[in-house]
Design a protein around this nucleic acid. Structure first.
Length: 557
RNA sequence: GGCCCUUUGGAGAAGCGGUUAACUCAUCAGGUUUUCAUCCUGCCACGCGUGGGUUCGAAUCCCGCAAGGGUCACCA
């Protein structure tokens, strides 16, 4: 009497009445153009958003968007031991912050799911997996396994000793051969079990697989009887991936290259289920150079600040800075495009698999800084105002207080040398703003004021006093920058015997007290308390006559 | 250890059998500017992991080796 798989299936899943055919009807193929990609981001809710995850999600979203497809979000919470409650929502929030917003799926918070292919949370799909497993058992392609942890350890030990490939497969898969009566007995006894896939593969056979990034790959067939359903009734990643991506009609799976090794399992699983496998794109993983070993390794949340997306938010990096940086890693031609279109929407850039590098890029903070600096430089003053205010509210009390002191003034400050072909580029991140412009605040000026200001060292106190006195007398706030500099500043220089240019001074230093730079420095230090500042003319204009006079007088006295 | 993937400078990389081996960042050296930030110019691979081959000619094609990464769970 041959083994009756039908009976086995009924024995294990008596309550399951639906079939895969029913599921096919429930989740019909999507009505989309042929070349539209259906992609997804499918994290497990175990922590905050990892920079590598943002990278993967960004790519998935972008391919869906540029093909008028669908990008959805699925929560893979089948490992209840590792799950950290609430992180699914956090992941959604952080992604949304970077403009990576799903068209459908799990939407975060208590918001209901969007889309017809749900539920989009794996723990809520147990019935679906059971239907699929039952089908596989009926086909003789899955079976219950009663092996304990100890059994498996022992098996492994034996295999290692005899130097065969370890694992549950072929002749070592002893539960494969259990008779129906035995299974019945064990189940009746309440023995815990899992369901394994029965592989038909042979390790010595090779399959050709196409990867969107890597092209044609030759991989060994899977021969492992992998676990597809755990003792808690939830599926393992391998099986959930196959069922979900089939019934959610995903046609492009983007994931990290660490999944390449298990691709043969997935290929065989899809075939056994009678499903067409999706396109795969195994993406390079972002790496970092380990300072101790000097070797490359994956960005690690424990060791590297840059591994957490929240780090960039807290530091005040503009969202677009990180996105653009990640795109330079994703596609080598993105930088050229960016230079040609510094202010364009990045959605206008066409991402392609052919321009994707095959090995993991080292995360490069200086590069991010450069990109970020440009992002901020090309913002309008209103945009920077809003974004930095938002940042301040969340992370910087001092900046928030500064802004609130005089919002109109803050807007003017942000506008210094902004706009035009060659904008000023002095902020890499929002958190840089405060330290560069806080001197504008009258109260901060007071608190920082000291008798020992960094005036040019070649000048005496009396020299400084003389310059500042003349400055107060001659200063005119109505004239334009050219006039101010040529008439007023150079005028003072001439009167007090300073060279009108550093060059003149260099030629004959003995003839002068200093040069025009020293004159400007006196004013700058008196007004800003620092040897460097943004454009002095604009600083004076923004502070206004009353305040400038007050500050200069305070220094003179 | 087995298997798989990868390999152009300090970093991201272009390159697809004949180029002075693009471009960007960083560094360094100059220049412009009243400071800073900009901006401009220049230097930085006699070499494309390494050894062989094929070819008139190789970073580009073939083979071996090495190194780095990944993976071998009732984790994803």
């Amino acid at each position: 009497m041959p083994f009756n798989y039908e009976d086995l299936a009924e024995l294990i899943f008596p309550e399951v009445k639906e079939t895969v055919a029913d599921l096919e009807k429930r989740f019909p193929p999507r009505d989309l153009p042929n070349d539209a990609f259906v992609t997804r981001f499918a994290p497990s809710p175990t922590g905050f958003l990892h920079t590598g995850s943002l990278f993967t999600a960004l790519i998935a979203k972008t391919f869906a968007k540029q093909t008028n497809g669908v990008y959805f979000f699925r929560l893979e919470d089948t490992d209840q031991k590792r799950e950290v409650k609430g992180t699914g929502d956090k992941l959604c929030h952080e992604l949304a912050r970077f403009g990576v917003v799903q068209n459908e799926g799990y939407m975060g918070d208590s918001k209901s799911e969007v889309g017809l292919y749900g539920p989009y949370v794996q723990s809520k799909r147990a019935d679906i997996y059971k239907i699929c497993v039952k089908e596989l058992i009926k086909k003789g392609r899955a079976y219950p396994c009663f092996c304990t942890k100890e059994d498996l350890d022992e098996l492994r030990a034996v295999q290692e000793m005899s130097k065969v490939i370890p694992g549950y497969y072929g002749e070592y898969a002893k539960c494969r051969n259990l008779k129906l009566a035995e299974v019945k007995k064990l189940i009746k006894e309440g023995k815990p079990y899992i369901i394994r896939f029965k592989s038909n593969g042979d390790h010595n056979n090779f399959i050709k697989v196409h990867d969107m990034v890597r092209g044609e790959l030759t991989l060994s067939e899977n021969d492992q009887d992998v676990v597809i359903m755990k003792s808690d009734g939830l599926p393992t990643y391998h099986f959930a991936h196959v069922c979900d991506d089939h019934f959610m009609r995903t046609n492009l799976v983007t994931r990290g290259e660490e999944w390449l090794a298990s691709l043969p399992i997935h290929i065989e699983l899809f075939a056994a289920m009678g499903f067409e496998a999706p396109n795969y794109a195994h993406l390079p993983v972002i790496m970092v150079n380990d300072s101790e070993t000097h070797n490359k390794r994956k960005l690690s949340k424990r060791k590297d600040m840059e591994a957490s997306v929240s780090y960039f938010i807290e530091q005040g990096y503009p969202v677009m800075g990180l996105i653009k940086y990640l795109l330079t890693i994703a596609n080598s031609n993105f930088e050229e495009w960016l230079m040609a279109h510094p202010t364009d929407d990045v959605d206008n850039f066409k991402l392609s698999f052919s321009k994707m590098s095959l090995d993991g890029a080292l995360f490069d903070l200086p590069k991010l800084n450069d990109i970020s600096k440009n992002v901020i430089a090309y913002m309008t003053k209103e945009e920077l105002f809003d974004k930095s205010l938002e940042y301040a509210k969340e992370f910087s009390m001092e900046l928030l207080n500064f802004i609130n002191e005089d919002k109109e003034k803050y807007l003017k400050i942000l506008n210094i040398e902004r706009g035009g072909e060659k904008p000023r580029k002095d902020y890499v991140k929002y958190s840089d703003i405060y330290q560069k412009v806080s001197f504008f605040s009258n109260s901060i000026y007071e608190s920082r004021f000291t008798k020992d200001l960094p005036f040019p060292e070649n000048l005496t106190k009396d020299d400084v006093k003389a310059v500042l006195t003349r400055f107060l007398e001659k200063m005119d706030y109505k004239v334009d920058e050219q006039t101010w500099f040529n008439d007023i500043m150079k005028g003072i220089a001439k009167e007090l015997n300073y060279a009108l240019s550093p060059k003149d001074y260099k030629k004959e230093p003995q003839n002068y007290k200093g040069h025009i730079g020293d004159v400007a420095a006196c004013v700058r230090v008196a007004v800003c308390l620092s040897t460097n500042s943004p454009n002095l003319y604009q600083v004076l204009q923004i502070l206004g006559e009353k305040e400038v006079t007050r500050r200069v007088k305070k220094v003179i006295e």
